[in-house]
Write a protein that binds this DNA or RNA. Structure first.
Lengths: 128, 128
DNA sequence: CTCGAAAGTTAGGGGTACCTAACAAATTTA
DNA sequence: TAAATTTGTTAGGTACCCCTAACTTTCGAG
């Protein structure tokens, strides 16, 4: 019913896009390694993503993001970068902490706060 | 094993402390209404909180936070206020949006980011 | 081309956190 | 104080997201 994706689903999308850009083809095992999750769990999750029309995949076949899936993945990655930049450049949070934290926050940030972060970064990043 | 509390558990603690300050006694039904959750689910959750020694409660009896429970509740409420203030005063996020958002973020913020937020507020709140 | 390793799937299971329905206890009220 | 209402509990069920074990399919080396 709700149109928003779960954190887990968003993590899968983000990982699939990242791996496809790095390696071209994306495999169940790569996703499993990346997310430190059992490959059986990945197969299960991919069934769900297919049901949501975020990927296409046939049995034993390659994993491909749909346009919808690519769009959603990009949204999440964009938020991740935004939050990370903000935490590091404005709040001076250590980069490693910021990166880990952005992986959680990226799933929860409202569009209003997202806009507010963009404005804040624009107005404050060029100061000395 | 992990010593950190789940978002759900933290929400219960926060709600119990809030209700106890507003009304004195805290009832299952009050918590259910506040969190918009079925009262059967609340009863179940309270069993868990008791197991974690965060509350004391006997069957059909009153709900009391332990010292541990009160401490954890205060930590969450503190983070909530901190995040809310930051979103509103620094980022200019509308108060209603900020309040809702803080209810999610309060469960995820790292101690480093918490400290960073405190510093930032201290250094920027007394400007014009 | 075959056979063994690697990759992927299926079946069954567990924890969390929610639900409804039915029931038990407590409180209100008539 | 007995009946009706409210409050709290129990039992059983669902969805999500992870797990292991056992299986099937695919691929690559010999």
């Amino acid at each position: 019913m709700s149109d928003s994706l779960s954190p887990a689903v968003e993590d899968y999308l983000k990982t699939i896009l990242k791996l496809s850009m790095e390696n071209g083809e994306v495999h169940v095992t790569d996703i499993a390694k990346q997310l430190k999750i059992n490959k059986a769990s990945v197969t299960q999750a991919l069934d769900k993503l297919r049901g949501l029309k975020l990927i296409t995949k046939v049995k034993y076949g390659p994993i491909k993001l749909t346009e919808k899936g690519k769009g959603e993945a990009l949204k999440v990655i964009y938020k991740h970068i935004l939050i990370c930049n903000f935490l590091v450049s404005i709040l001076n949070v250590p980069p490693d902490v910021a990166t880990k934290e952005a992986c959680f926050l990226e799933h929860l940030i409202s569009s209003q706060t997202q806009t507010a972060l963009i404005n804040f970064l624009e107005n404050n990043l060029y100061e000395i």
